[in-house]
Amino acid sequence: MTHDPFTPRPDEKDMRDAYCDALIAAAEADSRVIVIDCDLSNSLGTGRFHARFPERSFNLGIMEANACSMAAGLSLTGFVPFVHSFAVFTSRRMTDQIFLSCAYAGLNVKLIGGDAGVSAAVNGGTHMAFEDFGVLRSIVGLRLFEPTDNTMVRALIPHIASRYGVDYIRMPRRSVIKIYEPGETFMPGEAKQLREGEDVTLIASGVMVSEALIAADLLENEGVHASVLDCFTIQPLDTAQIVERAQQTGCVVTAENHNIIGGLGSAVAELLSERAPVPLERVGVKNVFGEVGPQAYLMDRFGLRAKDICAAAHRVIERKQR
């Protein structure tokens, strides 16, 4: 099978700006949509929402736990609050509030975690969420998303705003590599197949999707045909498609901007070990803390590159052939 080679080029604007556009559009369509910030609106780009809907915007200050439970209370009266902080705080500082005030109480709260993984860059290890999906994935009923590019953000936000439940959306703030053309449609819970190939399945999310596409091209040059899935919904996982691709190709590599413990790789490993045991490797952060540096440096440092995916692909193919 042949494809046009993937040519990485950046999205036209920062993801936070595409997100804010989408949120404003959602709020124009639905008067229940409101915004809660925790003193990070400048970083996370919600300022234009505050300007457009001042009466529906609340900066509750540096009190994430309170913000989360207040959002639950607001949703109890019918509002659809979008709560914003860095992924480290949205996951770690709000965990108990997400569990009880939001999820256990059966309410309707949308949680935004900014500066996902290595995109925290020079904020360093304290602000670098490699564990947010791991922290939140075992809370019952949460849906976990990692939008891949601006086209997907614009498509997902209206869906998230209109569907009742607790959702966590993990995003970088800056521009990322563009994957999708405008008008592309997405079904939450359904992974996007970006490449077809019969030798190995690459399952990626977030910034690792572009690395997986580059890896697929590199593998193609070596005569290895890789299937690539953009698994932007970490929970609920697209179990049917992942099992099907694993069975078709007989081996799998996952790739995530997250600790390999607890996130996409763990979720896929759990699924396949029960339903379709095949050789599998997880490309991701190998259970170490983040550190300061430009994103490009950090992706090299933590082994989040196409070459790392290629190397893992060769290993699982070799194991498959044993």
């Binding site: 609340f58 309170n66 207040m70 639950a72 607001l74 109890l76 009266t77 019918g78 005030s101």
Partner: peptide
Amino acid sequence: LSCAAGIALGL
């Protein structure tokens, strides 16, 4: 108390 504050704000 946070939940109650959120309810009060919503109302």
